[in-house]
Design a protein around this nucleic acid. Structure first.
Lengths: 198, 198
DNA sequence: CTGATATTTGACCGATCGGTCCATTATTCG
DNA sequence: CGAATAATGGACCGATCGGTCAAATATCAG
């Protein structure tokens, strides 16, 4: 025979990647060392390299995992039939609430964090950030178009531009939420922006 | 005599701090090594420590320097007598244009970068971020109050909340500008937000 | 069981990190 | 001119970085 199954893996690569994502999410790329990962995962260094490749590849895979979780959730939330505008409002308000909460404050959004730390000098990471934002913008725009067709959003508004405004605002909310401890600031910002949808 | 002047410094600490700021601004805290600073400044390691203290202290001093430059400029721009609303619009549009430009893209805003990288785990840096944002919010709010008193901004608007919304949006513009290469996105976002001031 | 293969473990690699130390050099005061 | 003092350059420090390697171990086919 040409191949054997040989020794089986003692850990679940899928669960491990999820764990990696959480650590990178909380600490960022540079501030997370291989030793941190080893201790947090309970897996040997070599096993990490054999399974995921270099630290950089591992980070990119964590980004992909993040997208696989987040994107369908956002899609489901913004593509429900019926009134579309309340869904958009709910998304923005949830972002603001998470950014102001104690646990969400320390993490921020993984994509936003990556954009700030890696995107300018890391094409592979930047590409994933761009894809994620493009996806979010498209979903928001789609919901706003539907809202307009259903008479929830006045004619004359530009759904694409509004979606871009909301996308940019969401990034700002995550950043401000990470460093400022005044929940009223992000809440006010979100509500004012949502007033544009009236 | 108790003190002598002894040997004089061969570099200008003020100019050196400015140079340090530029390097931290472009690369961030962790990604800038002492060796980078030595090479960029043309100053010996020991001289840096003797003049500015540790790398962390040096970063905080760079933050202070950034504030000393930016704050008066923003104050001057937003406190000119006469119409106040055009000044607010100009500030937001300038942010958006800088974020979309090629050189501004790589840097972003130093405070925004610090908020993302250090604020969650660095109280001293977080405090400076908070002060900077508080200052910007206050200036924006002040200009909007004046605009309202002068009939440029409709009654019934909340200047404080609007200022917060603009502040958060500006952070988002910087982040998106760093990672996305589509100038239209930040431009659209800025223009839509400014529509709230009509 | 035996041989083949894949995984695990932990020691180990050179490079680099932030930071320190000291001999040398330049400056000012007496 | 010395004596005192501070700045300089560069060797040096232990710690840690990302990454590799080989020996030990576990699982498969036959």
């Amino acid at each position: 025979m040409v191949f054997d199954m040989a020794r089986t893996k003692e850990f679940d690569p899928d669960a491990a990647l999820q764990s990696v994502l959480e650590l990178f999410w909380r600490r960022g790329y540079q501030a997370t060392s291989l030793t941190d990962l080893v201790e947090h995962l309970g897996i040997g260094r070599a096993s990490i390299y054999a399974t995921f490749g270099s630290k950089h590849e591992l980070y990119l895979k964590a980004m992909d995992r993040y997208g696989e979780t987040r994107d369908p959730a956002l899609l489901a939330e913004l593509s429900r039939p019926g009134p579309a505008l309340p869904a958009v409002r709910a998304v923005v308000r949830r972002f603001a609430a998470e950014a102001a909460s104690s646990e969400g404050r320390l993490n921020g959004c993984f994509i936003t964090n990556t954009a700030a730390e890696l995107a300018p000098h890391d094409p592979a990471a930047a590409r994933r950030v761009e894809i994620s934002w493009e996806h979010a913008e498209t979903l928001l725009c789609s919901a706003l178009v539907r809202a307009q067709a259903q008479g929830e959003l006045p004619e004359g508004r530009d759904p694409r531009a509004l979606a871009r405004m909301l996308l940019v605002l969401l990034q700002g909310i995550r950043i401000v939420g990470k460093a400022s401890n005044d929940p009223a600031r992000v809440r006010d910002a979100a509500e004012q922006a949502l007033a544009l949808l009236d």
